[in-house]
Design a protein around this nucleic acid. Sequence first.
DNA 1: AAGAGGTGCAACCGCTCCACC
DNA 2: GGGTGGAGCGGTTGCACCTCT
Length: 150
Amino acid sequence: MERQRSEEVIKKGPWTAEEDEVLLNFVNSYGPRDWSSIRSMGLLPRTGKSCRLRWVNKLRPNLKIGCKFSAEEERVVIDLQARFGNKWASIASYLPGRTDNDVKNFWSSRQKRLARILQSPPKSSNSQRSKGKATAVPEMATSQVTRTSV
DNA sequence: AAGAGGTGCAACCGCTCCACC
DNA sequence: GGGTGGAGCGGTTGCACCTCT
């Protein structure tokens, strides 16, 4: 019973503004550490893991939230990925304001797109579904293909 | 105007490494 | 020296939004 209760307490899914605020207050007071104590102190019904992730990806100061990767950042990611492989945290450390999750998502999106481009025959450009969100692809694609295919 | 397809983002899960007891 | 717990990292998945047909 008790165990069941303690499991029920853990919340998952999207974070609310209130939770963000509590997490920020905690970090301001104790610093970005001891994540598991957030739950043990009864501040939030979230795991330490979840709290750390939320802070790192969304609440940390100086994050470039909602800001697309610049051409320069893309180049850095491509270059560092070639050097380090999928060491996203290491790569992110070279990109101020970017998180490992950002870099990881950016890279996997590019990979998917590249795969699609390479698979699809070079039909007329009309058939390309270039979304507004996903514009700067073609140039990227070529430079990436050469590197990733190694 | 509606439906289908594709993209990007946020979050969770499992594994590995490190520090402490 | 070994065991346990916590933190960090990488991979994967689901959802919402946007564009095109």
